[in-house]
């Protein structure tokens, strides 16, 4: 990502002059307050919004030279939540991830079906395969969306607050899953509202504030008491917690 900017037509600048890069298999977690521009940034990388300035490069190839279809083969996007209308089975839903590889007038081939099956196995939701995806829980829906994006076989996954609608257990399981996917070679960019989750992912952290990445670096460098104060305006403690074997980030009572 090179010097990228985005502003709405009414000149409200959402972010400006962002630059960063991501290697294969790396996870970048973007933290920032509400309205800092995290989702807009993800949408721009996915080609859903057009940059007003700057460029995004995939292996040196500019996003401006790629069509929607080419982007879809490289970048998979998982929205914060999905509101189903029609009761497709989980398998059909996952199979839709194969769309970039299916001709306009064609239907999925046996090869596409096999890949969708495999994605369902990878995510571990084989038991849900034939269920209507209107009847599964929020956590299961999240998994179905992950399976769909795995079936899409992109190089980069964009996950928009993947844990925000999940219960405590599913949040942690989702983080584990994201870790596994990055080990399989997917690069991942996620946005999050939970600085503490970063310690579970051991990733790169980008801090977005007022449309600028104010800093980017390792978890240990970024998740600090000063930075958290800067982003969220609250006092936190970051400390090593022996019983968990990791660092934690917890807010203090504010008054």
């Amino acid at each position: 990502m090179r010097d990228a900017s985005f502003s709405y037509p009414d000149h409200k600048v959402i972010f400006d002059g962002l630059s960063f890069s991501l290697e294969k298999g790396e996870i970048l977690c973007i933290l920032g307050a509400n309205g800092a521009g995290k989702s807009t940034l993800l949408n721009s990388i996915g080609g859903l919004f057009q940059l007003s300035k700057g460029d995004i490069l995939f292996d040196g190839q500019s996003i401006r030279s790629l069509g929607q279809l080419e982007i879809a083969k490289r970048v998979g996007y998982v929205p914060q939540s999905h509101l189903p209308t029609f009761p497709y089975s989980v398998f059909e839903f996952v199979l839709m991830g194969r769309t970039p590889y299916i001709g306009t007038f064609s239907s999925p081939s046996d090869h596409d079906r096999a890949i969708a099956e495999e994605a369902i196995e990878t995510i571990g939701i084989a038991h849900l395969k034939h269920k209507p995806y209107t009847e599964i829980s929020g956590g299961e829906m999240q998994l179905a969306m992950f399976a769909r994006v795995v079936a899409q076989q992109p190089e980069l996954l964009l996950l928009d607050e993947p844990t925000s609608h999940l219960d405590f257990g599913n949040q942690i399981r989702t983080l584990e899953l994201i870790g596994n996917l990055s080990q399989k070679g997917f690069s991942v960019i996620i946005t999050s509202h939970f600085p503490d989750h970063s310690f579970l992912l051991s990733n790169k952290i980008g801090i977005l504030k007022d449309g600028r990445i104010i800093d980017i670096g390792s978890v240990d460098e970024m998740i600090t008491e000063e930075n958290m104060k800067k982003i969220y305006g609250i006092d936190v403690r970051v400390a090593y917690f022996e019983q968990a074997g990791r660092k934690i980030c917890v807010p203090l009572r504010q008054n």
Binding site: L48, G67, V75, G76, Y77, L83, E92, M96, T104
Partner: peptide
């Protein structure tokens, strides 16, 4: 009938259809 699969994907919603590589305006 030929567009049957694309219609499935369209019914997921505009943004998701686009993220799956569909030119929704044209379709």
């Amino acid at each position: 009938l030929l567009l049957r699969w694309r219609l499935n994907v369209l019914s997921l919603g505009d943004r998701e259809a686009r993220s799956l590589g569909i030119n929704i305006r044209k379709l």
